[in-house]
Nucleic acid binder design. Structure first.
Lengths: 126, 126
DNA sequence: GCGCGTAGGTGCTTAGGACACTGAGCGGTA
DNA sequence: TACCGCTCAGTGTCCTAAGCACCTACGCGC
């Protein structure tokens, strides 16, 4: 890429480490293995799917004690490393929810201010 | 090395490059200089104020053609580099608004799914 | 044997963000 | 006048997340 940002679309999207929060939630809903989570993440808004990044994150989260993995045979394909949530992971999921509420609030604040600007001065509810 | 994330609070918060979006908006509302923007950013949700990062970002955005700066005497203190928005910058501001609406939608989706989980009401998704 | 879908992973590079630090102009005051 | 504190603008440096490419292995059908 050129040194100067030249894309015609903002590069930003999701909060840092948002994938971690999603993984905690998904694994809490139902223990799952990486390949499965990859597909679920896609539905959650992670368009550019990056298996490498996902697997790295999962291993890191296990090392930090947020997840616990165990190998399970698959029947159709190689064995799966299945993850479940630890108590610590559950605490973090709650903490993440708080952080993301704040994120949504701040982004929402930006958007109302943006809308007020483009609509002139009058404020209106969307 | 490998300090193995041990913070007791999620590190994530705001979307990548969110400061850029805010700067476009703020400068559009009213041309301003860096020190001024620093304080306005604080009110917008940027708690850990980082002058270095801000000034670097402003210079970068000017190099990309989103902002235009000019020196103005201050009367009380050193001269100020005052920024205004270019047409291209305006386009990017609109594009950012779109991106951030999507961000808010995805984060909101996470939060409703989280709330459904903790409330035990898991019979419905968006 | 071969390709294909499933499953899990490594290497490498870069862009952003965090944190520390520098330096200059100007006013007040001790 | 010497110092301090506020205003204003930067630089240096490190760390991490993110992005991209690439690799291995299992099992099935052809």
């Amino acid at each position: 890429m050129t040194p100067l940002r030249d894309a015609d679309e903002p590069q930003g999207g999701l909060p840092k480490n948002f994938m971690r929060a999603c993984l905690l939630l998904l694994v809490r809903e139902r223990p799952a293995h990486g390949y499965d989570l990859l597909e679920q993440l896609y539905e959650l808004g992670f368009g550019g799917n990056d298996p490498g990044g996902l697997y790295r994150t999962l291993r890191a989260m296990e090392q930090e004690g947020l997840l616990l993995s165990s190998w399970e045979p698959s029947g159709m394909g190689p064995p799966r490393r299945t993850y479940e949530l630890t108590d610590e992971g559950l605490d973090w999921m709650h903490a993440w929810a708080g952080t993301l509420r704040e994120t949504r609030r701040i982004v929402g604040h930006f958007l109302s201010r943006y809308e007020a600007l483009v609509e002139g001065v009058s404020s209106r509810n969307d």
